[in-house]
């Protein structure tokens, strides 16, 4: 097929020139007004430091923080998806009770900003519920091998209760948004699909599991992917309850070294890499799922 080279109209060239001029101007202003000595040399040490005892590089604070962020993100994604899907199904239920409960939950979360909710949850609820989970006893009773495995999944043992609290509250917040996405997906499945399933005798649960949910979820992969990426970024909130994830580490280093720009630019870049990798993975998923649909 013969493709014409796209020719840009004059207006576009003018706009490009204007944007470029704007960015150049801002850069120039920052350079002249901001009296700042750039010194990037401190950063590599906080990524990896030379360990004399082992004779090799080991991860330092920033990388450890990144690991914690990735742990939180993955666990929160899993838990929030489960809760969110259940809530989303409840939102479309025939019975009033599930509909009402899930509606109330979603409205509550959506109308409170994350920070108040986080603190509410952490101080009031976490202090009551987390002890019930028995994490501390489990840690004390665990053998070193079990502990090592647990630490790989959950982070340092002494911070596991904090980690649990942060992860659960983030999950609860995300679940509300996932519920709405799933609800929209379910409602977008054509009525005829449900009727066809009913006409071959599928029960309500079988209908959901084999006919409705597969189609609903396939439809909402893009907004779901967006929600997961937002989740990775929102994980920085738990720095407020002293979970030592990437933003928390960045804050500490920036303050102690007095190198704000370098630290935060690197941190931003690390978040960007993680989020973009996630976006690429979801893009692949979308493409694979899209094969079977019209």
């Amino acid at each position: 097929m013969f493709m014409k080279r796209p020719r840009l109209p004059l207006v576009d060239y003018i706009i490009f020139a204007a944007v470029f001029a704007g960015v150049a101007y801002v850069g120039y202003r920052v350079e002249t007004v901001l009296i700042y000595k750039w010194d990037w040399s401190v950063i590599p040490n906080y990524l990896f430091r030379w360990d004399e005892g082992r004779g090799s590089f080991v991860p330092n604070l920033l990388i450890k923080g990144l690991a914690t962020t990735i742990r939180i993100a993955i666990w929160t994604m899993i838990v929030a998806s489960i809760i969110g899907t259940i809530l989303g199904i409840a939102r479309t239920s025939d019975r009033l009770f599930p509909r009402l409960v899930s509606w109330a939950y979603v409205e509550f979360i959506r109308n409170i900003p994350p920070v108040p909710f986080l603190f509410l949850f952490y101080f009031f609820i976490a202090s009551q519920i987390i002890p019930l989970l028995g994490i501390d006893e489990a840690i004390h009773g665990a053998s070193p091998e079990t502990l090592a495995i647990a630490e790989f999944f959950f982070g340092p043992a002494n911070l596991m209760t904090n980690f649990a609290a942060g992860m659960i509250s983030l999950s609860m917040m995300s679940a509300a948004y996932i519920a709405e996405i799933i609800r929209a997906g379910i409602q977008a499945v054509p009525k005829g699909q449900r009727e066809a399933g009913q006409s071959i005798g599928l029960s309500h649960i079988q209908l959901l599991r084999y006919v409705v949910l597969p189609q609903a979820i396939a439809r909402v992969v893009p907004p779901l992917a967006g929600q997961f990426i937002t989740l990775i970024k929102d994980s920085s909130l738990v720095a407020l309850i002293s979970i030592q994830e990437l933003s928390f580490m960045a804050m500490e280093i920036a303050i102690s070294e007095q190198r704000f720009f370098e630290v935060w630019i690197v941190t931003g870049a690390m978040y960007f890499i993680v989020c973009y990798a996630c976006a690429l993975m979801f893009g692949q998923l979308e493409r694979r799922i899209g094969v079977h649909r019209r």
């Binding site: 009727e195 006409s199 071959i200 005798g201 029960s203 006919v211 189609q215 079977h292 649909r293």
Partner: peptide
């Protein structure tokens, strides 16, 4: 209802095959 539906087959104007 479910057991009756298993005994009554239905063919729809819009086919309604499961696309996935």
């Amino acid at each position: 209802t479910a057991s009756i539906r298993a005994e009554v087959g239905m063919v729809f104007q819009q086919f309604n095959l499961f696309p996935h």
